[in-house]
Structure formats: C-alpha cells, structure tokens
C-alpha cells in the first residue's frame, strides 16, 4: 500500500506544482491546497499504515491494534491550519482582483515604490 500511496502523493505534488506555476491566482490557490493535502498524506504515510488500527486505548489502558497517534495529531492541526491558510489566500485573491481587475499574477510585478 505504501507504494500506491507514494505514487498518489507524487501525482498530487506534480499537479500542485503545475498549478503553482500557472499565472492565474485561482489555480495557484488550488495548487497550494493540493500540496498541503499531499503533505498531510506524507506525514500519515510516515506513521506506518495499519489497516483497521485505532489510536484509542481501552478503559484499562490496553490496546489491540495501535496506529501511531503522533502524526495524526500533527495532521489534525495541519488540516485546520491549511483551512485557515486557504481562506486567507482566497481573501487575498479576491482583494487583488477587486483592486487590479485581473486574475493574472504577472500583473503583480509592479507593487510598491518604483
């Protein structure tokens, strides 16, 4: 399964990179979303995949099939942060479009004091 997951992550990264290199900001944001997903998957993959495992203890502290809980905690925060980042980027993009009237990133070149 690790192989399949690695390929999936690779494809996600490739797509994300391709989108990041576009001039349209919408695509840029989508690229960032894809890459952050892929990064979460890398972390997840690093925990070692255990089918039907759980990161929970029984009442007495014993466990049956344990998956690594730490990457999960990391990913959980990463997902929420990713959401915040995406929202921020979208706000930025919206404002950018409002002010410049274009979606083209190359227009961003002339910004401050020239």
């Amino acid at each position: 399964m690790e192989l399949i997951l690695a390929i999936l992550i690779g494809v996600l990264f490739a797509a994300g990179t391709y989108l990041l290199l576009r001039r349209s900001i919408v695509k840029l944001v989508m690229g960032i979303v894809l890459i952050s997903y892929a990064t979460n998957l890398i972390l997840f993959n690093a925990s070692g995949l255990v089918q039907n495992g759980l990161a929970f203890l029984n009442k007495d502290g014993s466990y049956d099939k344990m998956t690594d809980p730490l990457p999960q905690a990391l990913i959980l925060t990463a997902i929420v942060i990713g959401f915040g980042l995406t929202a921020f980027l979208l706000a930025l993009k919206y404002k950018f479009f409002k002010i410049t009237g274009t979606d083209d990133l190359d227009q961003l070149k002339e910004t401050d004091a020239s």
Partner: peptide, 10 residues
C-alpha cells in the same frame, strides 16, 4: 470564532 468570522467576512 475563527471559522465563523472568516466565513461571515466573505
């Protein structure tokens, strides 16, 4: 607060 604030602003 964060999520609602963001969404409402949008």
């Amino acid at each position: 607060g964060v999520v609602t604030s963001m969404s409402f602003q949008f």
